[in-house]
Design a protein around this nucleic acid. Sequence first.
DNA 1: GACAGGTACTGTATCTGATCAACTACTGGA
DNA 2: TCCAGTAGTTGATCAGATACAGTACCTGTC
Lengths: 123, 123
Amino acid sequence: MQPDQSPPAEDAFSADLLRGHTDTIVLATLRRGDRYGFEIYKAIRDATGGAHEIKEATLYATYRRLTRDGLVEAYWGDESQGGRRKYYRITDAGRAVFRRNVAAWRATRDVVDTLLTDKEPRS
Amino acid sequence: MQPDQSPPAEDAFSADLLRGHTDTIVLATLRRGDRYGFEIYKAIRDATGGAHEIKEATLYATYRRLTRDGLVEAYWGDESQGGRRKYYRITDAGRAVFRRNVAAWRATRDVVDTLLTDKEPRS
DNA sequence: GACAGGTACTGTATCTGATCAACTACTGGA
DNA sequence: TCCAGTAGTTGATCAGATACAGTACCTGTC
């Protein structure tokens, strides 16, 4: 994080702010049905109106991690004459982790909201 | 992050979920007045009822970063006979960055909420 | 006085997720 | 043919968070 005082930035997304959520976001996308890698990339980019983008390399690293941990399963599509597409399917373990992660996210979100709120905690 | 399927965990805080927010949380604390390092540590720990704790080492790394970037100023307290305490004071630049970071947090929060929302886009 | 335990600060090494910067490979259009 | 877009992948690197270890001081207790 550079000092960069310059940009006005209300859309000051920082990669670190999303860090740790990527897995959950991918799992959320896969809950709605199998998707191939680039499709997930586009889905996330479009869901935020292009404001936020998770980089391809980040996502492919995520797929590896999720696959390694058994949270998703990968299989090649049968686009034999088109470009190859690797599809991902969420597993039961993946659904369980997703639910836990959403709970963790909500708890974290509330904690941060509390900590950033200017109100003095009336004791 | 291990596969650890075991713990039930509604309080499943992950360090990475807070990543990038530490600076802002510290700045938020300092907006209410000068604090010394360990005091901030306790303040954050207590503000969440002990549910969340930012590790000392993390905070001291944060102080270094904030000082380096001119967002806070450090000075030694005059506890000449007590244990030394290094106090931190938020600068104008720090206040400006804080405001921007809060905006970024809100935007990020809403993006994550959107992405994790279960609603099927009925087509 | 010795000692435990809490307060307070610091440095070093390591882990991990995110990103950069390439690269391969196919398709369709100008 | 060249280019842009789609699609997947890898290796190097960065930075924040943490583990771990250490220093130093204070208070209360035996």
